[in-house]
């Protein structure tokens, strides 16, 4: 009897040790490629980053200076259009799934979102091309942003749903008990409480679309000039990076690495800024 509990408590201790060790090991292993990839980009990219890189237009091989100012602006505009398309669908769709999506309809919509997430982005690009480029007979930032917006939808929907579901039920009920309409409770109490988690999902998807090349080549196209018009071809960092990366010239390779580094830096800044200004909610 006595012996048995002792063995059990020993077993519990071993399990606990094993659990802690495994978890720490996982974190360590996950960090290795992280540092390797980011370090690789940093080492390759830092030498070509200077003020010109952010303000000047691309220049041909052999010319000195130049940057990808237009592509940096273009990436922001394209991501903005993508958010206009992707966020309402993702967030409201996610809220509906969490609040009302228990039945068959919810299952069907959830399933559709998952299927959408595995479609290669180049195919999403083909879709946007057929809808908005082939019909209008010219490339446009809108078509590119539309494609990127569709790519955002599954991640945003999924995270919104999960985070809204995670909000303690008593918070919701307390709101209803005060006589506040359900929709106001959902938007003002539940959504706000869930916002931190949702934000992570939104950031992940914005980060991801900022790094997409394939869906833009046939939609937003690219341009070496300044252009803010959303009905015209628009430059993006990724297409510019891709063009440079596949070219034979070392000067362009350096620009490609600098572009990748800048992209990482932009996402880092947005994440840190928004995290700073949005307070984390602690559940008790």
């Amino acid at each position: 009897m006595e012996n048995n509990t002792e063995i059990q408590s020993k077993l519990r201790k071993i399990k606990e040790r094993f659990f802690l060790a495994a978890v720490v090991l996982c974190a360590l292993i996950a960090v290795v490629p992280l540092f390797s990839v980011i370090g690789y980009v940093f080492i390759k990219g830092i030498s070509a980053v200077n003020l010109d890189f952010f303000t000047k237009l691309p220049v041909p091989v052999g010319d000195i200076g130049g940057g990808m100012g237009n592509a940096i602006v273009g990436t922001f505009i394209l991501s903005g259009i993508a958010c206009l398309v992707g966020l309402p669908v993702g967030i409201f769709g996610g809220i509906w799934l969490a609040q009302f999506g228990k039945g068959k309809r919810g299952f069907f919509i959830r399933y559709s979102a998952d299927v959408l997430s595995s479609i290669p982005t180049i195919v999403i690009g083909i879709f946007a091309y057929v809808l908005l480029v082939a019909t209008l007979k010219h490339f446009s930032a809108v078509a590119g942003g539309f494609a990127l917006g569709i790519i955002m939808i599954p991640t945003v929907t999924r995270t919104t749903e999960e985070m809204v579901k995670m909000v303690p039920r008593n918070l919701y009920e307390a709101g209803l008990a005060l006589g506040i309409p359900e929709w106001k409770v959902t938007l003002h109490i539940v959504f706000r409480t869930a916002w931190n988690g949702i934000f992570t999902g939104v950031m992940l998807s914005v980060a991801r679309i900022m790094g997409e090349t394939a869906p833009l080549i046939f939609t937003a196209f690219n341009t070496p000039y300044w252009s803010l018009r959303v009905d015209q071809p628009m430059a993006s960092m990724t297409v510019t990076i891709y063009n440079y990366a596949i070219s034979p010239f070392a000067e362009w390779h350096a620009q490609a690495w600098a572009g990748s580094l800048t992209l990482v830096f932009i996402v880092l800044s947005i994440t840190l800024l928004v995290r700073k200004f949005s307070k984390r909610v602690v559940y008790t």
């Binding site: 990839v37 980009v41 790094g211 990366a245 990748s260 990482v264 932009i266």
Partner: peptide, 25 residues
Amino acid sequence: YIAVMVELLAAIPSVVYGLWGIFVL
């Protein structure tokens, strides 16, 4: 820091992963 770094991994263009894959991984 680790949490932010993990999110940054999502922003790296896949062509960069590809090059890293050829030359490092």
